[in-house]
Nucleic acid binder design. Sequence first.
DNA 1: TTGAAAGCGCTAACAA
DNA 2: TTGTTAGCGCTTTCAA
Lengths: 334, 334
Amino acid sequence: MKKATIYDVAREAGVSLATVSRVINGSSVVREKTKEKVMKVIDELNFKPNQIARGLATNKTTTIAVIFPQSLFAHVKDMIGGIGDAGRTLDYNITIYTTDDIGNGPMDDVMEKVIRTRADGVILFNNDKITQQIELVKKHSIPAVVIGMQVSDDSLGSVYVDAQKITYDIVNNYLEKGKNDIIFVSPQQNLIRTVDLIEGMKKAYQDHQLPFDEATQVIDTSTHYEESYTQFVEHFRNHKHDLVFASYDKEGVAVVNAAIDNNISVPDDMEVMAMMDTSYSLICRPSLSTIHLPIYDMGALAVRLLTKILNQEELETKEVCVGYTNIYRKSTIQ
Amino acid sequence: MKKATIYDVAREAGVSLATVSRVINGSSVVREKTKEKVMKVIDELNFKPNQIARGLATNKTTTIAVIFPQSLFAHVKDMIGGIGDAGRTLDYNITIYTTDDIGNGPMDDVMEKVIRTRADGVILFNNDKITQQIELVKKHSIPAVVIGMQVSDDSLGSVYVDAQKITYDIVNNYLEKGKNDIIFVSPQQNLIRTVDLIEGMKKAYQDHQLPFDEATQVIDTSTHYEESYTQFVEHFRNHKHDLVFASYDKEGVAVVNAAIDNNISVPDDMEVMAMMDTSYSLICRPSLSTIHLPIYDMGALAVRLLTKILNQEELETKEVCVGYTNIYRKSTIQ
DNA sequence: TTGAAAGCGCTAACAA
DNA sequence: TTGTTAGCGCTTTCAA
């Protein structure tokens, strides 16, 4: 049995196409009596408007494309809940596109697909290729919002956190206590811009007239627990710091475990602080002090912001900065 | 500047619509010379075929809807990588829909959206409402594959793991060693059917002519670490078992940590085994023995299977059973 | 308040 | 090998 179309409804209800269209789009001009009649037929025929046809007619798809590299997956997946829920509430379809790790001209290919599908807008995430991605959406003038970094551009929105402030405050706090052996560990790919995080540290050192040596105080690591753990076991064989700040809980746990295995007591001999407040930080023993970011909300906010841009709604700002909370648990002395 | 349409290309290239259409769809009948000419214009005008228009004409959207309850998010998110990558390789769009936790008539609403968007097919996950969901897709005759449970139905595909065998083998092994105080812990919502997991245990007990008491040997828990941890700290105050089998690593870690806090040594006093082989099992101390399931692959396989069904390709079976590996680490005596 | 009709951008017979 | 033409199912003027 074929799906009922608007024609079928019109015929059965004895009205024109236009009237049915008005009814399903909630136009106010249609008489109550007619409306009821049409609704009844819609129900009887189990008619569901074809969004594809509508899309063709209106040149809108009510679809938002979410683009992210697989390597950022750990961060993105936690946001998908918020993105999905907001999409549902606001009646937008969310379609996801992964880049890299597979295929060849990754970003171009993906953008090509997004353009073909005529998504109304896209959501991007801070990553090492973000500049190139932003170029692309601008070139094709696709409305977009990027999560994880502030971007000041008329055509783009952004949802971000004040990364510099996060590290500045923490580092400043330790320096004030005379604890100035602080290192920063992070994988290359990160939702929160590592340059900003590092910048915040630098500033704090500067304000205390202390030297900050990026070569030794910033350590790159892997996103795979086993690799980072192994790396840190080695590192802590002959290093010990006042504070290790990790940009993601998982790496924070690797630090803690590696330290413990080198008989460095956390937090007594060395303090550890991480970011994101995921389950990892709870599971860790001692439990990890961490920065809580409103991950779910950031996803939902990005969708909300994007739809506002799409609907040309008034908005005070296209750059929305979200708050965060320092959560002190057992890996720091508080 | 408006986007170029197939008309623009036809006009510029001095050919008809049909020819352009043939070129972009890779039809073999078009002369090489003409093809080149058309391609050139396509490039110049930066023409991107409108998939919406194509969808209307062909009655196909090349999109797959992935539907899952938020409560199953922890499992699903790990699969999204595989689903996304497979979608990209096979040139299908993946759109995600979350159910429950928000809104009212959850599943009906979602299905309504899926129908409106005319997704070619859907991917479902085992969860406590799966029967109802299967009913719905069948009622609307939407091609579907479900992940996490075997379903024998002509119109549906499934990608699953032999859950009964997993628990049977493990439990059987312990019973043979005379260790028969075994409990099973799991949250309500699970990707792998808990009834099957429990059934496997029962069978093993049966084969050993030993009683299995579901009331005491099966423990429900929360998906939130803090809650399950608290619950287990209480439980282990006056319980100790030969083996605790948890259906997900996170709950396994909660068991381990709660046991340790009650001075129960793992694995000497009590062994713990979990499922999924996520980072949690690595982070746990002692590291968790766990069942490795090919999560990424299951996602990719589901997409592959669904597209085969959509394209009416020949397939030996619609019920694909994937393998698994027992990974023994430090939470069990091996 | 309703209807007629054109058009959205493409595909797919069918004819040439 | 190419072109003509009729849809696909909806929205949206414009007129009534």
